[in-house]
Computed example of a mutant assay.
Amino acid sequence: MNHLPLAAALLALAPFTAQAQQAGEPGTPYANMNHLAPIGVRNDRYLTVPDAAKGPPIDPAKGYRTEDLGGGTYMVTDNGYSSMFVVYETGVVVVDAPPSYGAHLLAAIREVTDRPITHLIYSHSHADHIAATPLLGKVPVIIAQEETKRLLIEARDPNRPLPTLTFKERYTLKAGSKTIQLSYPGYGHSPGNILIHVPSAKVLMVIDTVFPGWMPWRRLALAQDITGLFRIMHEIEGMDFDKLVGGHVERWGTKADVIQQLEFMNDLKAAAATALKTTGIGEELDAADKTNPWAVYDNYIDRVVVQCMNTLEPKWRDRLGGYDAFIWDQCFAMEQSLRID
């Protein structure tokens, strides 16, 4: 079995059944409870990752893999994180410096060229994507969207040096014969998160937004604006690229991966919307708790999410890597967005 069966899940909850229960302790599962382990309950074994989600293996002696994306553009990855660099006539433009393989990033570049790093582009402000910047040495120009600089000023993190050049909406970097187009589509994952497009190579890099072959990270990759995330996904779908560097998971993506993620997100939205409309408020709730508004809505939201889960599972559980790891999170995030955004 790839997951904790319902009988085992109920057995695990046995100490908390009504006879032993005191106020404030967990009780029995909801009616129609989805069998995948909910948040806070351990999985004995997660679902097998589909082959379509997998990428080439990493040489453990190196700790990273470099892939030639064409046109002087390269991806570096450890199959958990990914970044990019572009080689031009007299130098190298690096996009992001993730700490997970930061100690090897310069070596990865040196496998391709000994030209100096002249520019570093920050995709956004988050430390897990740029906090290995000092390991690249002195970089003359660091480029970011102005919201990223604002957040980095607040962070005061020596591992994330402030950008030396910022822009508001669009910036075109000319590096020798290479052109890299930077654009800010607005809030989605986080303020300042930009699209990095290398038109000549037909490569697009957008971080923490598209997860090729995989379930997005929890709560739609912790998107600060889920409505904005949908809008940005449609913008990405309309762009001209063949290969996409997403910042995570095992492989680069394609337009088909963008379309598949949009399909999942639309199904998630529809499932959560239907569950919100068809779930009764106050059902399966102890009468003594009905004057407690937090209890009433905790109970309601839980049952909405269970219905959302049950709707999505037949179509998606075997199509996306890590489906069972974060599907509870996705349903919680989507119902909240539909109620308040």
Rank of each mutant, 00 (worst) to 15 (best):
A127W: 05
H126W: 04
E154H: 07
I196E: 08
G188T: 02
E154V: 13
Q145D: 14
Q145S: 08
V210A: 05
L229S: 12
Q224F: 00
L152D: 04
W217K: 12
P212T: 06
G192M: 04
L120G: 11
G176V: 09
L120I: 11
T133A: 12
V198D: 07
T209R: 07
E154Y: 00
V198Y: 01
R115M: 09
I121T: 03
L222D: 14
Y187L: 15
E169Q: 13
K138I: 04
L173Q: 05
T166P: 08
K149W: 00
D157S: 10
H129I: 07
I121E: 05
I153M: 11
K149G: 01
V210K: 06
P216R: 08
G228D: 06
A201K: 05
R110N: 12
P185W: 02
F230G: 10
I207D: 10
T166M: 03
I121S: 04
E111Q: 14
I226T: 10
Q181V: 14
S183H: 02
M215L: 15
L135A: 13
A201L: 06
I117P: 08
L135Y: 00
K178G: 01
H189S: 06
G188D: 12
R170C: 05
V198I: 15
A155S: 12
L120N: 09
T172E: 14
P199E: 11
E146Q: 15
T179F: 00
A221Q: 03
E154G: 01
P191V: 08
R150K: 15
Y184L: 11
Y122V: 08
H119P: 00
L182M: 08
F230C: 05
V139G: 03
G213K: 10
P216F: 06
